[in-house]
Design a protein around this nucleic acid. Structure first.
Lengths: 300, 300
DNA sequence: CCAATAGTGTCTATGAGACAATATCAG
DNA sequence: CTGATATTGTCTCATAGACACTATTGG
């Protein structure tokens, strides 16, 4: 008995001495955030222009180191708050990237998160912070994606505040009449910034590609699309369809999409019809409320 | 120009001093491995009995810290080699777990990997190492899973070598005649060890549950099932069907499964028919070779 | 009326569950 | 022949793509 205890104590001490933090070289761990949103049928992604070495002038994802007393997701939320001022945004872990030289400064392992932000929330927050954060259109290409933004490239010599998308685009703040609300997939822009994979810092192009693939793969089988809704308590099926268009990068047939949602969400009680319709240009549209789980059977 | 450079240099120094490893408290990062295999229609999982505090006597996943010069996947491979002697096993990242107190000793973030090991490979390796690693049957229950093993619980006071599954079960080493090869889903064992979620150390029950859900969700849409094949160059559709049975925890109709594989893999050229059939008890079975990618169009 | 948007219906192809029927071996 | 396993076929239902048609608003 005594012998067993001392044996155990020895082992525990062995463990603690062997793995005491700081005693040997360890990777650092950070969390990167992919801030996605939708506008009409266009998927949006927030990138930050780097003002420091390495990759100065290139674009990257917001991120930060994970502190000793926060989870990876909390670090991602903290980053989202710092970069955009937003809280309470739905997030989902994407993947953990750990290549040795993914950051030339030091060894950093990154746990990446997808944040799904409603357009309305982001509209009041874009141009965010110091004008280094820019919301890009995500455009699928044959071999991946490119990113486009209407904003005029800021003069970096001043290096303080470039033009922000809201300033340049002059977006209306009223949702239903926004000109782009019902548009098709993004077309080539005639001006602004075009960002290819090579213009993206670190391994963040790979992270973005992974995120796009993940979202396309999951939106038909999970409820992630609903996170992009401006108002989960009053949305139309067209609102939802445009989100699916944006995330998957394809146009969805109106009738087929309605049937799809009906089977998966209406008949299961995961969304329910509201009393009031929403009036607009044509025939008023029924609005729905997102419930999420099937509330039919009470919790036992 | 000079001013700009010094500004950059200042920022870079700021970064390095702020994030120099060891300067402030950071989480440690480890990698845990879920070693799965199949035998007949039974899914198998390798667990290790803990001989140290905390959770002494409970079961856990093999794992190790990620070194400064290896990726998370390399750490997982190294763990797999250390615990089972196996190399070249297909692995897939599962999820990164980062709750603050998931390990009571210290802050450890864990990147978990699923290893998919063919039965034949594992058969020559089980009873692995010091007899602390045991291969369990995974049995789905209404609210998750339990783990069962035929092996007799070793006397831990001796603490050196308990009975290993291979010793106790006395499994034949010849594959085609193994009695369990064509069996149905696992039945309750009359002796041996039953491990419930509460008997599992750390947050590893949650990790296992996540892995089971992931594999069930992916096997119908990806090729992960093929990693469990003893011989990717000569397998029968029954071999494959039993793997699907094991992973999903349900019996698959023979005819429907053949049609499923035909549509997804044979007509696409991802598996091709071999000349030689495999003889057994009844009608000889056609064997197939796994190609993976569609080789019809040459790489451009 | 027309333009615009919302919503329904219909034809067809595909995939999967249930299950019957046939084929080919060992003995 | 029988037992055992492999392989094919058939009926049916659910789902989804393509696309035509109807409904309800504003002007």
């Amino acid at each position: 008995m005594i012998s067993e205890l001392s044996e155990d104590q020895k082992k525990e001490q062995e463990f603690l001495s062997k793995y005491d933090p700081g005693e040997y070289e360890r990777p650092s761990i950070a969390s990167d955030v992919l801030v996605f949103s939708t506008e009409g049928s266009v998927l949006k992604l927030l990138l930050i222009r780097r003002n420091d070495y390495p990759f100065k002038g290139k674009w990257c994802l917001p991120g930060s180191f994970i502190g000793a007393n926060e989870t990876a997701e909390e670090a991602a939320s903290r980053t989202l708050l710092k970069e955009t001022g937003m809280t309470g945004i739905a997030m989902e872990q994407l993947y953990t990237f750990s290549k040795i030289d993914r950051d030339p400064r030091m060894r950093i392992i990154s746990v990446s998160y997808i944040a799904m932000v409603p357009n309305r929330v982001l509209r009041f927050r874009k141009g965010i912070r110091d004008g280094e954060a820019v919301l890009f259109d995500v455009v699928r290409t044959g071999d991946g994606f490119v990113l486009m933004s209407d904003f005029e490239e800021p003069d970096l010599s001043g290096a303080e505040r470039g033009a922000t998308p809201s300033e340049v685009q002059g977006q209306a703040t009223v949702l239903p009449e926004t000109k782009d609300r019902n548009t098709a997939l993004p077309e080539a822009k005639t001006h602004g910034v075009l960002v290819r994979k090579g213009d993206i810092a670190f391994d963040h192009a790979e992270i973005i590609q992974t995120a796009l693939d993940r979202m396309v793969g999951k939106i038909d089988y999970t409820d992630i699309g609903f996170h992009f809704l401006d108002d989960k308590d009053a949305f139309t099926l067209t609102d939802l369809r445009l989100i699916y268009n944006a995330v998957k990068g394809v146009e969805h047939d109106i009738g087929n999409f309605r049937r799809f949602i009906k089977n998966r969400y209406i008949v299961t009680g995961k969304i329910i019809n509201n009393r009031e319709d929403r009036k607009g240009f044509g025939r008023p549209a029924a609005t729905y409320r997102y419930i999420g789980v099937n509330r039919q059977q009470p919790a036992k």
